[in-house]
Design a protein around this nucleic acid. Sequence first.
DNA 1: TTTTTTTGTGTTATTTTAACACAATATAAT
DNA 2: ATTATATTGTGTTAAAATAACACAAAAAAA
Lengths: 254, 254
Amino acid sequence: MIEKKISEYLENAHEIFLPGVSLDVVILGYSENAIRVLLLKLKEYNLWALPGGFIAKNEDVDAATHKIVKERTGLEKLYFNQFHLFGKTGRNASFLQESSHAAKLSADARNWLNQRFVTVGYFALVRIDQVVPQPDILSEACDWLPVDQLPATILDHHEIVNTAIGHVRRQLNYFPVGLNLLPERFTISELQRLYECILNQKMDRGNFQRKILKLDILVRLEKLKTGGAHKAPYLYRFDRDKYQHKIQHGIGFI
Amino acid sequence: MIEKKISEYLENAHEIFLPGVSLDVVILGYSENAIRVLLLKLKEYNLWALPGGFIAKNEDVDAATHKIVKERTGLEKLYFNQFHLFGKTGRNASFLQESSHAAKLSADARNWLNQRFVTVGYFALVRIDQVVPQPDILSEACDWLPVDQLPATILDHHEIVNTAIGHVRRQLNYFPVGLNLLPERFTISELQRLYECILNQKMDRGNFQRKILKLDILVRLEKLKTGGAHKAPYLYRFDRDKYQHKIQHGIGFI
DNA sequence: TTTTTTTGTGTTATTTTAACACAATATAAT
DNA sequence: ATTATATTGTGTTAAAATAACACAAAAAAA
């Protein structure tokens, strides 16, 4: 039955969508000291996929990103960053043709899906506990999967995720990170663990503290009361205005 | 008559090219203390354009870049860097429709050109005096124009050039530059002027010298004999292996 | 009360950065 | 031939940044 949905969705795709171009979005989240990526499990296929789709002929690519993510995961108002156009031939060769489900698709749908696409990749960073992704009709599940143990995916989505992470890692040198990945109030150690997790390397605690505080994007709150068998750390929150300023203008950190 | 050429070129474009996607290349060169960009002057239009074109259906986008640049300017073996996908609607709205020449094109060509495109931008850096660009049949001229005084261009090529320069400027923090922009042998001051030109800011001479030498990508040659009314500076050349290593692995500089 | 763990902050050696200094020297001016 | 001018190679130094480690304070568990 899923084929019927896909066929309906792609009926007249030639008239609606910009041909040749697709769009995939790497939504990265953080929890339990692991960077995770939001993937959709395709119904009746044992494969995962990034939320992605096509761009309407009269639609900006940036706008399509928001629309596609909303449709496929329910998430809204994320901040997206374009990072690469994946343009190799043979990107989208195999999986559809080999599938036993392909034959059940309409001719329109098959034609559309079998054309050669280039895909533009966007990424976003979000707080896992603050969003509730909802799989769309094409997907049976929508899950946060750790990026270092990706499941089997369609096409080159594995490569797209890894490229996105490389970009995030490099951006860390110029832009702060954390506003969308940590709870409203957090400790410096929690922020440090996030950095260590993205960069996959340990950092000196004292030096990290001094350096991040000197960026002047954190506001110190009262002491943390609950918790571990040790001295209670201060809680901080981001100063959103100053944080946004650094995001816009960039500032070295690591 | 140019319309006939264009019509021929675009005949059956639907079958040959990936629809919806075009490609533009910002080739930057340096001479006389100005960063210049290679532009083509379109025949019978009083507008300039970046070398650009379309991607064959069975062709990698990276490969298309080389092919298009070769066809349109004669330049080969450049090192290209993809930097952005320009995806706004209305990018390619006006110039063709308004032109009196459009009516002379074949229906095929008009159809092809009137579809909505997104364009992927690549840039390259080259030594102006080492390449001899040749305009192709579609262009009456092929010239290096200073990026701070761009002439009227088609579409959003102005924005594409400026975006490319922004990327080059940011890359300067991570990768050396100069191998493709200076003569084989050059002085440190010449290299400094290049940096100042790209960054549009003055730098301290002594500090620049120490810093660039510490990168360990330059080889000192004999003294410069000819020239100015002052102490003769040393000549240097790039150590290509070490330079390439820095390009690959990146290293902070500025 | 003691132990364990982590925190906030301190110390110090080393390196980097930024700004300026000055003699050396190749040509031009006299 | 002598002096002036411009630019070079290198030196100096204060300030800032970096890296590695130190230690008492404190919250909870033992």
